[in-house]
């Protein structure tokens, strides 16, 4: 039954319109990398790292996760199709987890491929290690963002609005402007983990408002976000009145 819900969610997530937006966003880093290569742009180390951080981790990844994950439950609630799943003889976690994993798959595949390929095209040293670290970072960040946005979708049908405010307001602006807030930024945690695994790929500042949290904080924090948001989704499914 879990595979049925997984496949159902894949089909929902890959509607023509959504898939087009998703591919467009995921293709941006790769397009920039290809154009740079054609123009023989000489990327400095800082520029490459900025490319990974600002464009992929801080912007494209959370946006793609938002577009895919926020509607996973919010649309089912709004369209009143969630009753089909809630009236099935299955535990609520068997609804929550396959749906979140399906959304994760839809986010990770194009984003990881795009990141992996971008790094291979523009990187100058440790190409394959950096590409794998980049793709792994995408997986970790995507899991956290997807779990968060899917959970928010069980709380409100306006999860996309919340997500846009969160991505552009908190992740992009506030968390960089106010010292210490990077500690609770998923992008910050993702960058911290990538920096630990492949220092050449990401070289974030060690101090200042833009500094990501230390690795000893980032790993448990991102695990806590993933676990708590998924538990929250299951809890909501158990408690909610389905209309």
């Amino acid at each position: 039954m879990s595979d049925t819900i997984f496949i159902l969610t894949l089909r929902q997530s890959l509607s023509l319109k959504r898939a087009a937006i998703l591919l467009l966003l995921a293709a941006i880093p790769l397009t920039i990398a290809i154009v740079s290569e054609i123009l023989n742009t000489d990327w400095g180390g800082d520029e490459m790292q900025g490319f990974i951080q600002a464009l992929i981790i801080n912007t494209a990844l959370p946006l793609v996760a938002l577009i895919v994950a926020a509607p996973v439950f919010a649309d089912e609630i709004e369209d009143r199709t969630l009753t089909n799943l809630m009236l099935a003889p299955i535990a609520r976690w068997q609804i929550a987890i396959p749906k979140t994993l399906a959304a994760l798959s839809v986010v990770v595949v194009p984003m990881a491929i795009s990141t992996f390929a971008s790094v291979i095209i523009i990187w100058q040293a440790d190409i394959y290690t950096s590409a794998i670290v980049g793709a792994f970072g995408i997986l970790v960040g995507a899991l956290a963002f997807t779990s968060l946005f899917a959970f928010v979708g069980t709380l409100t049908t306006r999860a996309v609005v919340f997500g846009i405010v969160y991505v552009f307001g908190f992740e992009a602006l506030i968390s960089s402007a106010i010292p210490g807030l990077k500690y609770i930024s998923i992008s910050g945690m993702t960058i911290s983990i990538m920096q630990e695994l492949g220092p050449t790929l990401v070289d974030a500042p060690k101090s200042g408002s833009n500094a990501p949290p230390p690795i000893e904080f980032a790993i448990p924090a991102i695990i806590a976000i993933i676990v708590l948001t998924n538990l929250g989704t299951i809890w909501r499914l158990k408690r909610m009145d389905v209309h």
């Binding site: 199709t81 009236l87 535990a91």
Partner: peptide, 22 residues
Amino acid sequence: RTDHNVYKRIGIMTENESAYEF
């Protein structure tokens, strides 16, 4: 609300037109 296995024995058609359009 707690014993979902009961749904194996029940067919339910709610009031809303809650079918997947695609």
